[in-house]
Amino acid sequence: MPEPTRQSPTALGLDPRRASWKAWLLLAPLLVWLALFVLLPTILLIVTSFSNRDELGRVVYSFNWDNYRRCFDPTWLSIFWDSIVYALLATFICVLVGYPAAYTIGRASPANRRLLLTLVMVPFWTSFLIRTYAWISVLSQEGLVNSLLLSSHILPTPLSMMYTPFAIVLGLVYNYLPFMILPIYTSVEKLDNSLVEAAYDLGAGPLRAFSRVIIPLTRPGITAGALLVFVPAIAMYAITTLMGGGSNPTIGEVIQNQFTRARNQPFGAALGVLLMLLFLVCFFVLGRKKNSAHPV
């Protein structure tokens, strides 16, 4: 091996300020990927959202605002609202449950840490659909929980848990919890212990040290986790269909239905575009909040 480390970036053709063709070459796979799988589909989605459909449900390209006008019908707006509430609840519960877990993992000894992290990842080894079906047999009227409650005479009649908003939020929390734990964990791991000690030295109690030092220092992890949970949760349809039974529709379900059984791709596309705009707003708001908290 020659000694490439000795060469200056300029000698390698890598100008530190201006990207050379080599840098572009390195970026090319990512750019192609982005163009093919992000930019192109988005353009297709937007074009479709202004189109019509024919008798069999094929897209007929044209330009009209009808699909968007239909989106603002109270029916769909209230479903949008419900989905936001489900996703917010799921995110909130994920923070409550995930933060202590991530904190414990981050403060554990390296050997334990590896074990605990593996345990967080274990559920990903099975398909989330299988795990969701498992919940059905746990929560149904003749399922595990109800049989236990009935046989131990805690309850006289079985609880109705499946196919309710409760089941939807539970399914979301269960499936997205690792997405919250892992980013918080990376923040906690980097947390400088001397800063916490300094807080104690300066007279802060545990509560104050936690709220004024630990939380702000691990906020990037919380923000990242919240985005990773909230964004997919709002558009999720598989879990919500299975656990919600279709009678508590979410916006993800409505969109999926438009592309399948309702055969109205243009309308589904219009709802999809609105959902995308909602995500953009989320990123914008969370990004701003973070900046104002850290005016560095």
Partner: peptide, 22 residues
């Protein structure tokens, strides 16, 4: 940028998990 790092790490971990599965 602080948000980005945990994001990327998590995504990497998930991609690895997904690769192992597929």
């Amino acid at each position: 940028m602080k948000t980005i790092r945990p994001l990327i790490l998590t995504l990497l971990a998930l991609v690895l998990a997904a690769c192992g599965k597929s």
